[in-house]
Amino acid sequence: MNGTFDPPATGKRVIPGTYVFDGDAARRGFAINEMCFSFNEDANRRAFAEDEEAYMERFHLSEEHKKAIRERDVIGMLNAGGNIYYLAKLAGILKLGVQDIGALQTGTTVDEFKAALLAHGAKLKELQTQGETA
């Protein structure tokens, strides 16, 4: 499911494991993001669910976009310029929550991903008990 992380061109700020949605990404991803924007309307969500290939064609998705969507490869979608705020609308159609998406991208199970979030909460409680934080 996971592709590889393509670091941005030289001279750009690299934040490991993070996709800075800049102009290059916006250009690469315009079609996939425009398709996802259309999912604000229920009729469009149903049209996609009925025939993904035809719907992707309607929005002129690149082969890279289509491949990532066919394989439900979230990292591939990001590398192809998908923006997470827009991909979240696609995730809704696929019945994937943000923790499912998180697990897909980090190569963990959903339970492991949730446990990692809860571990941050446990750390916070510990700090609060020690009086070191809010």
Binding site: P16, I75, T106, F113, H120, K123, L127, T133
Partner: peptide, 21 residues
């Protein structure tokens, strides 16, 4: 919080506390 990428799930208590303080 971070939704996307291999760093999805990132949380930073120290920075948040700095902001709130």
């Amino acid at each position: 919080h971070q939704l996307e990428g291999e760093r999805a799930g990132h949380i930073n208590i120290e920075y948040d506390t700095f902001c709130m303080d």
